[in-house]
């Protein structure tokens, strides 16, 4: 099965970090060297990838119009979000796409029945759990900033307070701990259960799911269940140290922490080389980020080839006789017939 290798890979990564971090001195590798390499790979790789995209032009204006175009006929009402005619409308469309996953909201599920009869029903689960996963991930990342920032800025504290507002248990449960797991389980489950999806999923679709699952689970385990040697003060000192280029490992920290950190490092390093680049790509998709104004404003294709149509002159040359015979105007009259 296509998920066995990614699963084995993530387990192997866990083992590497587990065994590795128990070797004296290797904590510096897993706690400092690898995270630095990973974040550098992430930032440079991400930018490199985007620049690579940007090196290719967008020769044609090809927005997918999902609504009524702008019309000079005043009673025809333009759908400004789905067929944007200017930049601000494009920005609004992109905003809803990036922030609310608007296209997924349209998702339907098709079925075929006797007849033959096709039915389509609205299916919002992918939208819901997709949104849940992504926002949980975002909040989790923001929350972790409390470990990298000293003093912790107010907005991080606000996010953390909101996430822990249910005040369940001690240490307090975060809502996003539950929702990110829920999201991951759904995203994995549908790949297994939905026929179409099971067939089209690749190993590189499962790997990030398992990896992020591993990150979430080790994080949750550290916080709630295996707290021994997870000294948050030492961890924060290390994290702030990483951010200020003065990293110090001042206490013995549990392997669980190094596993967590290693998996995060792998995710960061893997990011630019994988489909996770959809994070940047979503902003650059020409079917969404262009205005449907190609009859109003000329769009330039930088490599527009020099191609001329089959000329009228040669066309007329070929058919002049017939044209004249049939009273179709011509540019050049027929040569006088050589008697």
């Amino acid at each position: 099965m296509k998920y066995t290798f990614p699963l084995a890979a993530v387990i192997a990564l866990v083992l590497i970090a587990w065994i590795g971090s128990n070797i004296p001195g290797m904590q510096y590798l897993f706690g400092i060297v690898i995270p630095y390499l990973a974040i550098a790979t992430f930032i440079i790789g991400f930018c490199y990838r985007v620049v690579q995209w940007a090196k290719s032009p967008v020769p044609f204006r090809i927005p997918t119009t999902c609504g009524q175009q702008y019309s000079p006929l005043p009673w025809i009402k333009q759908n400004k979000l789905e067929a944007p005619a200017n930049t601000s409308q494009v920005v609004a469309r992109m905003f809803l796409e990036v922030v609310l996953f608007r296209s997924l909201w349209r998702h339907t599920k098709a079925e075929i029945h006797d007849g033959p009869k096709l039915t389509y029903e609205s299916s919002k689960w992918l939208w819901l759990f997709g949104l849940m996963f992504h926002y949980s991930f975002l909040v989790v990342v923001f929350r972790h900033m409390r470990l990298f920032l000293d003093p912790v800025p107010w907005f991080i504290q606000v996010i953390e307070f909101g996430d822990g507002i249910l005040q369940i248990g001690s240490p307090g449960m975060y809502i996003t701990d539950a929702t990110i797991i829920l999201g991951l389980v759904f995203l994995f489950g549908r790949r297994l259960i939905t026929r179409n999806l099971r067939y089209l999923s690749l190993a590189n679709d499962y790997f990030p799911l398992f990896l992020i699952f591993g990150i979430a689970v080790t994080g949750i385990m550290m916080r709630f269940y295996f707290r021994t040697d997870v000294d948050i003060v030492a961890i924060k000192r290390l994290a702030v140290g990483l951010a200020t280029f003065q990293p110090v490992i001042q206490a013995e920290i549990s392997s669980l922490f190094y596993i967590h950190l290693f998996l995060v490092s792998v995710l960061l390093a893997y990011f630019p080389y994988s489909k996770l680049m959809h994070m940047g790509g979503v902003f650059l998709s020409p079917t969404r980020n262009l205005a449907n104004d190609s009859r109003m404003r000329r769009h330039i294709n930088p490599w527009n080839p020099d191609i001329k149509p089959h000329s009228y002159a040669s066309y007329e040359d070929e058919f002049r006789e017939f044209m004249v015979e049939n009273d179709i105007p011509v540019e050049k009259e027929l040569p006088p017939k050589a008697e």
Partner: peptide, 11 residues
């Protein structure tokens, strides 16, 4: 039970 409780969305 506490673990179950924590892992379950309150409410």
């Amino acid at each position: 039970l506490k673990i179950v409780g924590i892992s379950t969305l309150a409410g």
